[in-house]
Design a protein around this nucleic acid. Structure first.
Lengths: 149, 149
DNA sequence: TATTGTTATACTCTATAACTATA
DNA sequence: TATAGTTATAGAGTATAACAATA
């Protein structure tokens, strides 16, 4: 054995930002492929994934980072395929709560499973690796709290 | 001092995947805001960012993960605003190489700067944190190589 | 008065298929 | 024959502005 090779120099903030750009693109590439496998677009798949509990149109718009007027069309198409339903809010009659149907629950589970099996490297991470990556991402994106429930 | 609180249990693969979903969404939310500040859409901003050197329409389609026919319109709009130009390839007359104009170089620098200042937490990472995060992301997304040059 | 959801509008992104010029 | 880029088309996502119903 000879001397250790020089360790990689630390990435610059700009290089790390570029890497995050590639990771974000790769994540959505995998997600779009998983959604497409069930006949859904990226936004339709994202919307289903956000419905871990019923949410108002307004809340969905916030979670999707788009204007509320867009959500009408997205939910229309999901409703037309029987994946979600609009329910009247019991206390505020202006509000409609969007909930997954049984078929929607089934579809979102399939999409998640396909996504996981597409991210094989991530599946093989140890507990320690996952904890370390999760902690670093929490610090890098502190504005990224998990939505309630 | 009393006993240490129980450490967080390791995140499950599914929880880490959800966190990556939120991180990817946050990255694009910041990127879209930076591009929008210069009158550009997300895809237009992404395209400018990929032109670190001239690239063919085909290569751009691959890097953008979309069909080549879409790139025509995106490049049309960028060209109409004087941010890129189409150059004939010297060896293959079918190919057009897309290059940033001086104004395009300027704009992409401003977008990158705005994006960096939007990701303040990332800017404050130590060399060690950046190296650790970069290494974990490389392992989690091994299919995510930086494009040449 | 303010908010929720919808509609109308115009623009951008998207994949598919067909076309041309070139290889 | 195959490939690079474009065009035509139809559908989906996008923000803005205006609207009705409700708070």
């Amino acid at each position: 054995m000879h001397q250790n090779p020089r360790p990689d120099p630390p990435a610059t903030p700009g290089e790390l930002m570029d890497q995050l750009a590639r990771v974000a693109a790769a994540y959505y590439r995998h997600f779009a492929a998983a959604a497409s496998g069930h006949g859904l677009t990226l936004m339709q798949g994202k919307t289903l994934s956000l419905l871990t509990r019923p949410r108002s149109m307004r809340a969905l718009a916030g979670l999707l980072s788009c204007d509320a007027s867009n959500v009408t069309g997205i939910v229309d198409r999901l409703e037309g395929r029987g994946l979600v339903r609009r329910e009247p809010d019991p206390v505020d009659r202006r509000v409609k709560n969007i909930a997954l149907t049984d078929q929607g629950e089934h579809t979102v589970r399939l999409i998640r499973a396909d996504l996981m099996s597409g991210l094989t490297a991530l599946e093989r991470f140890s507990d320690q690796d996952r904890t370390a990556l999760g902690a670093l991402l929490d610090r890098a994106f502190p504005d990224t709290a998990a939505p309630s429930a």
